[in-house]
Simulated assay, not measured.
Amino acid sequence: MSDVTRDVFDDKVTAWRQWQDAPWGRLRYTLAEHNIGRHLDGRRLRILDVAGGNGVEAVRYAAAGHQVTLVDYSPQMLASARSLAEATGVGNRVSVIESDVAKLGDVVEAGAYDLVLCHNLLPYVSDVESTLACVLAPLRPGGLASIIAANAYSEPLRVAIREMDLTAAYEALDATERYTQTFSTPVYPRTADEVSAALRRLGSGVLGHYGIRSVCDFIPDDQRKYDASFFAELERLELALTDRVPFLLTARLFHLIASAPAE
């Protein structure tokens, strides 16, 4: 179902890990976990991480005591996920499966998971609704889906403020394609409105809408974000803004928490 060949991700494991370790990557994981935590009750969960890559998120949840199944179609990402889980001491709580999301129903049990993570998948697929249908099918009744994607509304602001290229910012307003440097490939811009509408058509309700990195990506001085004191203040501000309008509307990433489809 992904429109991007798996070798794109196989070749970028190191670059992806560097991005994850950077301040903006660390914020992404902290904020996502914070937002999801608002909707959990402390129980141990069965979690499905769709397109989970090198396992950073899966391992975080496994370390908290949850049982996690990670599905991805990149062999190199999966090998990295296995190594990370073993090195962290949670190999017994992380299972990895090689599969495309379109074949998810062939490799995982329907209606069996408490939480499904769909993070950074939708920009790489042309058919959002069909992808979401595959992602939602493994949820048990009453389960939750967490969906994160780059926010198309943030791109014109980012280009205008960081790059001071007003022509490119204007062109980004209605662009149907953008480029991701980390994986060196074109992706589809998405909005929370678009994805929320697709979820409703599938019988799923949106329980929460959050923004991830409401200010970080608009601050031009990336080097200062590595300063521990500055980063601590940045993280505090980001946590305060994640559920506040209007900031969540133009955050670099949108984050939706959705219910399992009604039976």
Rank of each mutant, 00 (worst) to 15 (best):
R252D: 11
R140A: 13
Y73G: 00
A62Y: 08
D193Y: 06
I97M: 07
A51V: 02
V8S: 03
G208Y: 03
A85T: 03
G37F: 12
W24S: 10
A160R: 00
T191V: 06
A198V: 06
S130C: 10
Q223C: 00
H209G: 01
A228I: 10
I257H: 09
R236L: 12
S196G: 15
Q76K: 12
E86G: 05
E33N: 11
S196I: 09
R244Y: 03
G37R: 13
A85C: 08
W19Y: 15
L40Q: 08
Q67G: 03
G25Y: 09
R162F: 01
V108E: 06
V215N: 07
G91N: 04
A15H: 09
A172D: 11
G203Q: 13
C134M: 04
L256Q: 02
G91T: 01
H255W: 08
M164A: 14
D100P: 02
R201E: 10
S229W: 06
R162Y: 04
A110F: 02
Y179C: 06
E33G: 06
R6V: 13
R17Y: 08
L117F: 14
Y188R: 14
Y226T: 15
V245G: 03
D11Y: 09
D3E: 11
V187Q: 14
T5R: 15
D106T: 10
V59H: 03
V13D: 01
Y73Q: 02
M164K: 14
N35M: 12
E86P: 00
R6P: 15
L40V: 09
W16N: 08
D11A: 15
D221N: 15
N54R: 01
H255A: 07
R140V: 03
R213C: 13
Y29D: 12
L121R: 00
D21T: 10
Y170T: 11
D243C: 03
S214M: 09
Q223L: 08
A32D: 05
I257P: 00
L237F: 07
P141D: 10
A232K: 11
N92E: 15
H39E: 10
Y153R: 13
G65M: 07
A63Y: 08
V128P: 00
D7F: 15
Q67A: 14
P261G: 13
L166M: 13
T191C: 07
W19D: 08
G65I: 08
L166I: 07
L84H: 09
S196K: 02
E86L: 12
D127V: 05
D41I: 05
E155L: 13
S80C: 11
R140G: 03
L157H: 02
T167M: 11
R224T: 12
R44E: 13
T88M: 06
L234D: 03
G142A: 06
D49Y: 08
S259N: 11
Y124M: 03
D222E: 12
R17H: 09
L166V: 08
A150K: 07
A87C: 07
A51P: 10
T88C: 04
G55Y: 02
Q18V: 06
T180M: 11
H209L: 14
D114C: 01
D7E: 14
D7N: 09
